[in-house]
Each structure stands twice: as structure tokens, then as C-alpha cells.
Design a protein around this nucleic acid. Structure first.
Lengths: 236, 236
DNA sequence: TCAATATATTTTCTCGAGATTTTTAAATTC
DNA sequence: GAATTTAAAAATCTCGAGAAAATATATTGA
């Protein structure tokens, strides 16, 4: 039996400067250090990220795939803007796709999938215990992403998983906006545990219901953010 | 009333060389002049497309968004490979998403939507009449895309439509492979007409059924292609 | 005071050349 | 003869400078 974690979990390290700049920029956008709608001046940013202009442009082009950056010909790059309308769309689309993927995953998952799921939940639960200090937030974010990934890992559709990874990334950016408002808002741990048990019991209907509500609750917590705080930059 | 065609129909012309190269490359990949899996050597291609190396790299980076190009760090770019497995995934995912979008569009479409739909069908029908000569194939391809776009135009989800535009593009590449095998394979005109009437009658269930079968039939015609012909280059 | 034009500044876009890395080919060794 | 090592060739990746466009500022005229 293969005891190594699923392939998508293993973080391959960047081999080129373009890749490094791409990841650094993505992180800064998702975590809000680059504000929504902000102009991304190549000549200014290339110093911050320690690369040449052409390299930075290439990294920005890659971020268009993730819909985290937009470009208007001859008018440069911008951080993708945010809106409640957009996040509602993301939420609804994600509910549809992720429930579908989850049902397929539950129908097709084997022993290895169950084992990976248990392991991912355990890692997440450990991170949730000591999540009071904000220094462990990044650890929790990573493990939460992996838990959701492993849940649908047995779904055979590469395209469905590809689209979901984009939507998850988008949702994370919005969710981080609300985390500064309400550090520990809901009993997420119980939601995850119920999801785990429904999946392990192969109860697709129940699992899909829990997952739907789980995703929609995140939307409601973002909904509570004051409108003027949505476009703000955080930290440096 | 707004009598101009929907926004996504209007082809904005490229303002930068990156944009031009991106479109030329995309066309060449979808139409099979650049074979699946083929290596894309920047130094060689920059002459063909009349741009610098950096510009071409940027265009290739943009094509990664469309999943028409893949890149492995330090090992350059390649045309995305094809497989029957992949196209089956594309087909199934597209059936799910496009039926969902169509239902929403039928539920929310107004008079302008109906008018645009009728117009798009008419343009497509005209192109189908004189589609015997292959010189009109590009015209038909364009109008077919627009018809499918307008069908779901009243769906309010930008993300759903974004994902569908990617899948449509992918499907077009596969479909073109079968066109060289069977120029006028099925009675596509009747399928489109039935789709139009079901949509105009607001019969969402019927429309979704027709659309599902319509998309799946394309898969079956690609399925009939000999495996060794799948990775071949066409024309220059 | 406001609008329109002209100028100046900033920024984007583009290219060609040099540094690393990978790939190919030949040579050596077992 | 097959496998490893070494060397040559090719390709990728990267940077900085120059051309084109957009933005900001200043000027002019009513």
C-alpha cells in the first residue's frame, strides 16, 4: 500500500525565478498585502521581489490564470477587484462543483483514500487545537486546504478538481478578510468532523448537505464585513 | 431596448504584441497546426510570430490559463497533450456545467435574450446551409460558438461562464480532429433548432436533455478517431 | 472659473544579449 | 556490447535599456 500523501499535497519547490515571483505575488494577493484593485507597477515591484521586469511580467501573466490579477492592454496589471456579488457567485459555483466532486469521490474512494482522509483530518484537528495564537494560522490554512483536497481526491475528473482549486483560492482570499473581524467565528471543527464521518460512512447525501452548509457559512461571515473594509490592504 | 449583440460576441482587437502572439498561437493550437505534445521552442517560434523572445514567453504564459500550453520549470513549454480520457472528462464536466447554466439562463432570460438567441440561431443556420465548402468552416465555427454563448448568456454566474468558455475551447480542439474524418457527420442543424425551440418555450428540462445529448454526440464522433491520428499535426 | 490644448513625466511594452540549465553526442571504461 | 563519464551543443531563463503609450501637469483662451 502507498502510504505517502496524495500528489497534490506535496509542495514542489520553485525551479525558476518566474515561479518564485509567481508564488510570492500569489501569497501577497491572497493574504491581502496587495489590496484588491491595486495597480501593479512592474518597475516598482521588480525591486521588491528581486527579479527583472520581464520576469515579473511573466509571473503576473501566470496569475491571470488564477483570476488573481487582471490586465488591460497597454494599461498594465491590477490586483483582481473584490465584491460581495463576486463572492456569492464563487460560493454558489463552488457548492455545485464541490458537492458533485464529493459524491463521486465517496462513490469511488478506496482504502487508501479513507486513510488519507483520516490523516488529513487529524492534522487539521491538531492545528485547530492550538489555533488561538495567530502565528499558527498559516499552518491551519494549509491543513484546511489539504483536508478539502483529500475529500474530493478520489473524484476522477481532473477538470472538476482544477476548477475547484481556483475557486478555493479565490474563497480563501475572501475568507481571510473576515478572519480579522472574527478570529474564531464558528465551530468549524465540528463541521469538519461531521463531514469526515459522513464521508467515511459513504453517506453521500448527508456529506453533500454538510459541505454545502459549510461553504455557505463562510459566505455569511464575509457578508458581515463592512463594505469599506473589503478593499483595504492588510499589514505591510 | 438594446439591439447590439452581447458583449462577449464583440471581438476586441489586440492592443499589444503579446495579445497578438497569444491569439495567433491559440488559433494554431486549436486548429491543430501545432500538434498536441509538441515542444514550443521560444527561439524558433519568435521568428514565425515576429516577436521577441520575452514577448513570446509572455504569450505562452497566458495560454497556460486556457490549458492549451503546459510548462515544466527549466524545461520549456509544450502544447497540451490530448487523450480520449481527457476529452471524456471535458465532455462530462461540460454537460454538468452547461446544463446548469442553461437552466439558469432559461429561468432569467428576458426579451433581449430571446431576440439575441433567435439572431444567433439565424446566423448559424445561414452558415450551415453553405457549409459544404471548407472555406466557410471558420465562419461556422465562430457562429456555433456564439450560439452556445448566447444560450447561456442570461445565466448570472460569471464563474460558470468563465469555466465553460475554457471547456468549449478545449472541446473545439478535439472536435476539429474529427471534422477531417467526417465532414458532415450528423444533423447538427436539427439539434440546434430543437435546442432553440425548447429554450424559447422555457422548457428547461427538455432543453437540458437536448443539450446533454448534443455535447455527448460530439464525444462519440471523436471517439471514432484512430488513436494514432489523435496526435497528428494538420496543415503547415 | 472652467474647458481644451500642449507639454512633461511616468509607466508599459518590447527587444537583444548574456548566464544557467538541459539535452544531445561522443568518448571512455568495464 | 552496455553503461557510465565527459564534452559539446542547444535551449531556457534572466536582465537592462530603448521605443511607444498613457497619465499627470502646465499652459492658454474664453
Amino acid at each position: 500500500m502507498n502510504i505517502s500523501p496524495p500528489a497534490e499535497v506535496l509542495a514542489t519547490e520553485p525551479k525558476t525565478l518566474v515561479e518564485s515571483a509567481y508564488r510570492a505575488l500569489r501569497r501577497d494577493i491572497i493574504e491581502g498585502r496587495l489590496a484588491p484593485g491595486e495597480k501593479l507597477r512592474v518597475e516598482h515591484l521588480k525591486d521588491n521581489y528581486g527579479v527583472g521586469a520581464g520576469t515579473l511580467r511573466e509571473a503576473l501573466s501566470l496569475l491571470i490564470s488564477d483570476a488573481l490579477v487582471i490586465s488591460q492592454g497597454q494599461r498594465g496589471f491590477r490586483v483582481a477587484p473584490v465584491s460581495l456579488e463576486d463572492f456569492e457567485d464563487i460560493t454558489q459555483t463552488r457548492v455545485m462543483l464541490e458537492c458533485n466532486a464529493l459524491r463521486q469521490s465517496i462513490a469511488m474512494g478506496d482504502d487508501a483514500w479513507e486513510a488519507n482522509l483520516l490523516a488529513a483530518f487529524h492534522r487539521l484537528a491538531k492545528a485547530e487545537e492550538k489555533r488561538i495564537g495567530s502565528e499558527d494560522r498559516e499552518e491551519w490554512e494549509e491543513r484546511n486546504r489539504i483536508f478539502h483536497e483529500v475529500l474530493i481526491a478520489a473524484c476522477p475528473s481532473r477538470w472538476l478538481k482544477h476548477f475547484l482549486s481556483i475557486l478555493y483560492q479565490q474563497a480563501e482570499r475572501y475568507r481571510r478578510m473576515s478572519l480579522y473581524l472574527q478570529p474564531i467565528p464558528r465551530d468549524i471543527h465540528n463541521e469538519h468532523e461531521a463531514l469526515l464521518h459522513a464521508a467515511m460512512n459513504r453517506d453521500a447525501d448527508k456529506a453533500a448537505d454538510i459541505l454545502s452548509e459549510h461553504i455557505r457559512l463562510t459566505f455569511r461571515s464575509v457578508q458581515a464585513i463592512p463594505a469599506d473594509q473589503l478593499n483595504e490592504r492588510r499589514q505591510a
